[in-house]
Write a protein that binds this DNA or RNA. Sequence first.
RNA 1: GCGGCUAUGGCGGAAUUGGCAGACGCGCUAGAUUUAGGUUCUAGUGUCAACCGACGUGGGGGUUCAAGUCCCUCUAGCCGCACCA
Length: 823
Amino acid sequence: MLEKYNFSEIEAKWQKHWEETKAFKVVEDPDKEKYYVLEMFPYPSGKLHMGHVRNYSIGDVIARFKKMKGYNVLHPMGYDAFGLPAENAAIKNNVEPAEWTWSNIEEMNRQLREMGLSYDWDREVATAHPSYYKWMQWIFIQFFKKGLAYKKENPVNWCPSCQTVLANEQVVDGCCERCGTLVGKKNLSQWYFKITDYAERLLDNLDTLDGWPNKVKIMQRNWIGKSHGAEVEFKIKDRDETLTVFTTRVDTIFGTTFMVLAPEYPTVLDMVEGTEYEAPVKEYIDRCAHMNEIERTSTTNEKTGVFIGQYAVNPFTGKSMPIYISDYVLMGYGTGAVMGVPAHDQRDFEFAKKFDLEIIPVIEPEDPEIDLNDLKEAFAAEGKVINSGEFNGLDNVDAIQKVAEAAEERGIGKKTINYRLRDWLISRQRYWGTPIPMIHCDACGWVPEKEENLPVMLPTDVEFTGKGESPLATSKTFIDTVCPVCGKPAKRELDTMDTFLDSSWYFLRYCDARNDEAVFDKDKVDYWMNVDQYIGGVEHAIMHLMYARFFQMALYDLGLVKDEEPFKNLLTQGMVIKDGAKMSKSLGNVVSPAEIIEKYGADTARLFILFAAPPERELDWSDKGVEGSYRFINRVYRAVYEYKEKFAEGAADFYEIKTEADKSMAYWMNYAIKKVTDDVGERFNFNTAISTIMEMVNEMYRYKEGDVNEALYGAAIKNLIIMLAPFVPHVTEEMWDHLGYEGSVHEQSWPSYDESALVKDTVEIVVQINGKIKEKINIPGDLSREEMEKIAMEDEKVKGLTEGKNVVKVIAVPNKLLNIVVK
RNA sequence: GCGGCUAUGGCGGAAUUGGCAGACGCGCUAGAUUUAGGUUCUAGUGUCAACCGACGUGGGGGUUCAAGUCCCUCUAGCCGCACCA
């Protein structure tokens, strides 16, 4: 150990040592309790950013702490390696996506190793590797066999100039990211997963996830969007056809004055065929179909629509009502048909105003200010039912039940539940993704590739023109194959999978990452799962976390895993910001981890990022703050160096308390152990854990200026190094080594504290009079309320302040406070 | 529009159960060391008053012996969803 803290030498030395000794390799051990800590794996962009550093620093502290607490800790890392950027690089710079990706992974591997993270690198996975996507394809086939995968036609974003399909993120303000042309729509037959079959379970299980932030659970609940309502049938006049609507407000059915269908409603064209309405209806449907994002969002307030020349009959009033089509009705939700109740629904109200339709109020507001005959907006609140025949006078909330029941009795409706959640569109017209292992045979239809033929390899003879529907179509070797069922010539699916599939089960593969016989060994997964602590950005609150939960549930139903939910506890870390804004190139406020590590070392970077804010909050980057963390490490380093030079060694475990200073030192040491154990182990408040260690160091600096009890001071030094080890792993290993202790500091048991050292002989209590602090007195610890009161009342100052006054009440909080209420 | 979160010194933040507001760090001020500066060490640092003390956690109100913490209300900012019938 050099006299001066040379972080670059120390960090390189220990990183090499850990690597060579495979210090963080783990295997299943039934005798030890396991702990699985997982950070969301990165997309290999090639460069680590501060968000990564924060994410992995948090995970690493937890992993190292749990290991010191005696757990068998699984702490893996890998790469979410498929995706669009690799393909863009191929088109722009003529690099193979594979080459681009593998070299980025290599670079990120190097940067991650520079941070000194305690990963078991033998479990590294990369989703773009055939050894991973082989099993991705296998899972897809199991889902397909279970009926969870199906094909359906769906519009995709289509750039007419580039002649290519665009992902949503390639559409910027409704225009093509590359050429700026307005993006249109094109229908393609695509693969879906039936995630809606799991809507109820995905929703119900949220209640069991106690270790998840409420915010995330609420976001998922909203996304699933369960709503109770009723379906009611409306006959179409003079036609042998009915319209079924979904409504949550069946109590307002007497106020229905028109009907609205989604433009895509399947029978609309039949209904207008050969009539004068055919042309305008077709024109409107066409306009909606070609509508891009700009047009859609700009029409938020202004309702549009077309009358289709037909009338529906209200089953309760017998009234006939005009049928319209309008884009404010969505085909994907409910039935695609809506009953228009302008008096009590704002959208219907706007539509009625625009087309001059009748407005019939059927709920009476309590507020006398509202004039039902001249509504300025829809009245959507609760009230008494009016103008509704036999239902008049009911509270509308009760009427919801009663009307639904009446409809049920008449055989024209039923209570139903609707979800906002849609099936998961998993097809991507992209090259750099897992090939969907399906084959289309003219005789047998869509059949999966034989499992023994997996993986269906991504072809390499693909041209990256950036044109066409699916890049795989440009391969001469890929498309033609034989039907796995009948053996006749057949064609492969040309789409690849959404990369969210790859990341929906990687946590399972980590449990048995090198298995080439099976997706994973069930015993191994049973041992390691569930993930005890998952850590990542809140931006994944909905999609990734919902998809992963869906996968786990589907795999549970297939008997492959033992639990329905994969992540027991979830920590969503806040963003790293600087100067009040998210770090971004355009703002020029990006601080790269590389430059910080270069200047101060990884230990300083880790310490600062953990100290500056609690993990779930935003973190304001401060260059000055980084210097402060660097200073603190130096302060510790100097103390340890000086200790070795100046004081006797060893005998650190037993010490005698001789002086007041000793007692205070022992108190601080034990208090710090207690507090840090709690902050790191129970609360994940790393910032306060670090500040407690700083206080302990301040106390040590004070202490070493007086008469030093070397055994006690040695114990403090030793515990200090151990407690700092999860935060700053390199420098602590160096100091540990320097002091001549055996083995690695990271192999040590987490220290326990001595309760008796925390008992103070005297405590300072606050004396309040009428809630105002008037005096602080020192009294022996653990006195009863009566004794406390007695001592306080004898205090000169308190006497003076209470003299001649009537003491109404005395509230005593032992060892803390006394409040004397006087009049 | 709906749902959610947040608001504490010059700054990041602490106060875990209603019980000393501002721990710890940054910054700033002074002193010591060194002396070219920096480093390091020590002390001070919410505001007003500068003697007692008074005020103070976005604003207003309330509950309580006691409120940053609980309740009501308003304001500002951030995030998510958004024509979901």
